[in-house]
């Protein structure tokens, strides 16, 4: 069953096309990583799915319903980012208490345990928390609410490495006990590789890739060799990234599918796997060169 279906989803913000003819679907009980550069349209997509923003054209359904201002979608989904607004008069424990009243599946015990584990104090104020602490607190709400659709927009903003690790672990543990559909947007893909089942890569509001994690890991192949040879070999092939490394040597990333890899080996080129994180970065590079080209 598909929890989310988008068909030609387009969102205009003024003259800027934030989402451009986006079509994809997300199955029930999966964790999807929404990957893209800054400004790719990740937040826009999540806000539309959460029902906060309205699509300009195209079709979008969540639980087979149009999400915009839909109460059914709202009660079965939660949108978490680092900018959640709370009353300045309420303490953290009061906020959790209110949240528990809104979400029918709320696990009070879990929220209290996480609250204590991350050493929050009952009487602390939300606006006194640092950026990372805010993210951690929001994450508690995101996990404990146990919404059928959990949308986490850059959930780890400001968290330190240890907390990030704990967060991914907590998310996975609770997901295994209580399967649900999750979308995490991030640009730290390498940390989430073990967590994600699918990756939705978007660029300039367009879908670039929507693949299972395993396939993404196999998507590209790195080729290193003498510059002329590499240049010649990659001619007429699907090149994702090219970079000169050292003297008279070039590193190129190509789409693995259909490549005569044995021949490359015979030609003396070194083949290396490309991590999912790197492939996403290479795929979404605006130019084939990278930042170094700026300084040429």
């Amino acid at each position: 069953m598909n929890v989310i279906e988008c068909n030609g989803l387009t969102k205009m913000q003024g003259n800027h096309t934030a989402l451009d003819q986006l079509s994809f679907s997300i199955k029930e009980h999966t964790i999807t990583g929404l990957i893209g550069r800054n400004g790719a349209g990740k937040t826009t997509l999540l806000k539309i799915l959460a029902g906060h923003w309205k699509e300009t054209s195209g079709e979008v359904t969540v639980f087979s319903k149009r999400p915009f201002h839909n109460l059914f979608v709202s009660v079965n989904s939660i949108y978490i980012d680092d900018q959640l607004a709370f009353s300045t008069t309420m303490t953290l424990s009061e906020i959790l208490n209110e949240a528990s009243r809104f979400y029918p599946n709320w696990d009070k015990q879990l929220s209290e345990r996480l609250f204590n584990y991350f050493s929050f104090h009952e009487n602390q104020k939300h606006d006194q928390l640092s950026k990372g602490r805010k993210s951690t607190f929001h994450m508690i709400i995101g996990i404990a609410s146990r919404c059928a659709l959990t949308l986490l927009d850059e959930p780890t903003t400001g968290m330190d490495a240890a907390v990030r690790k704990d967060f991914y672990r907590a998310l996975l543990r609770d997901y295994l006990d209580h399967p649900r559909t999750m979308i995490l947007s991030s640009h730290h893909l390498e940390e989430m590789e073990d967590l994600l089942e699918n990756v939705l890569l978007i660029q300039n509001g367009r879908k670039y890739l929507h693949l299972p994690m395993d396939e993404l890991k196999e998507y590209g192949i790195g080729v290193t060799g003498r510059t002329e040879m590499v240049r010649q070999w990659i001619h007429n092939k699907k090149v994702i990234y090219v970079k000169e490394v050292g003297k008279n040597a070039t590193y190129a990333v190509l789409k693995r599918e259909g490549l005569p890899l044995e021949k490359a080996k015979q030609l003396g080129m070194e083949l290396t796997p490309v991590s999912a994180s790197d492939i996403c970065i290479y795929l979404t590079n605006q130019t084939k060169g990278g930042i170094d080209d700026v300084f040429k």
């Binding site: 008069t89 309420m90 303490t91 009061e94 104020k125």
Partner: peptide, 9 residues
């Protein structure tokens, strides 16, 4: 000095 504390308010 209420400091926006719910209790104090």
């Amino acid at each position: 000095r209420l400091n926006n504390s719910g209790k104090k308010v």
